[in-house]
């Protein structure tokens, strides 16, 4: 996957240029080359970079800051911020059509939900990724947010809102499916995706960070090699005739 493009769509509008340079350095040299390069890195380099940048320079990672210099016809607040603070009441500010069409305050590209869905479906149709991880990821998000809503309807947002806001679908289609760091067998892929989706909602609701996508992906990446020990049955093995 083109890592640099993924990093670019995750960065907020108006980040200083030196942050991008540092980010690329971290991504290529620490995230990728230091671990053995292509096919050997244990976690998604983009997510590693993003997590390091967010922790080091949190002041530059405020999506709403861009609104100081541009005049957008959208509610002037980060969608996740609002849902965190006001729950369902905040959610009422947005219609799902707006979220789908990208009328939300988000980073450079991760709010363009409609195009992310088109791109993800194309990847699946072209057999570049399999359907397991995105489907399970989305199920995880929906499942966990439904549970939270049942527990506390006042302070938690609806499943649809979680799905369409910020990086959820970017994570489901493009980040969690990164081949090197995700499992390859069907059952592990389902577990991996489901766990990722559920974890994302939990991090969004209970952690200090606005969007937990980076940490979610990092954590599930570490699970991948272990999950991959669940392998499908080899055809013909039950007869025990081997050399």
């Amino acid at each position: 996957m083109p890592l640099a493009i993924l990093l670019a769509v995750m960065l907020p509008v108006g980040v200083p240029w030196w942050l991008v340079v540092i980010g690329c350095f971290i991504m290529i040299f620490i995230g990728k080359k230091l671990f053995g390069g292509m096919g050997a890195y244990p976690v998604h380099p983009v997510m590693l970079t993003y997590a390091m940048l967010v922790i080091s320079w949190p002041q530059h990672f405020d999506n709403t800051k861009a609104l100081l210099s541009y005049n957008w016809d959208v509610p002037m607040i980060d969608v996740l911020q609002i849902s965190k603070t006001y729950g369902l009441n905040g959610e009422a500010l947005f219609s799902w059509q707006d979220l789908l069409m990208g009328n939300q305050v988000a980073a450079l590209g991760n709010g363009m939900v409609l195009f992310i869905i088109i791109g993800g479906l194309m990847l699946i149709l072209m057999n570049a990724i399999s359907w397991h991880i995105p489907t399970a990821f989305i199920l995880g998000v929906v499942g966990m947010s439904t549970i939270l809503q049942l527990i506390d309807p006042e302070l938690s947002a609806s499943p649809l809102f979680h799905l369409l806001s910020a990086s959820t679908l970017l994570g489901a289609f493009f980040l969690a499916t990164e081949t090197t760091t995700s499992p390859v067998n069907p059952i592990p892929m389902l577990i991996y995706g489901f766990f990722g989706g559920a974890l994302l909602v939990l991090l969004r609701s209970f952690s200090d960070h606005i969007d937990g996508i980076a940490f979610t992906i990092l954590i599930i990446n570490f699970m991948a090699p272990l999950l991959d020990r669940i392998t499908p049955r080899i055809c013909g093995m039950e007869l025990g005739h081997h050399a």
Binding site: M38, N127, A128
Partner: peptide
């Protein structure tokens, strides 16, 4: 090239 774990072979 290096294997990228893309799982095409497994599928």
């Amino acid at each position: 090239d290096h294997c990228t774990n893309c799982a095409a072979c497994i599928r």
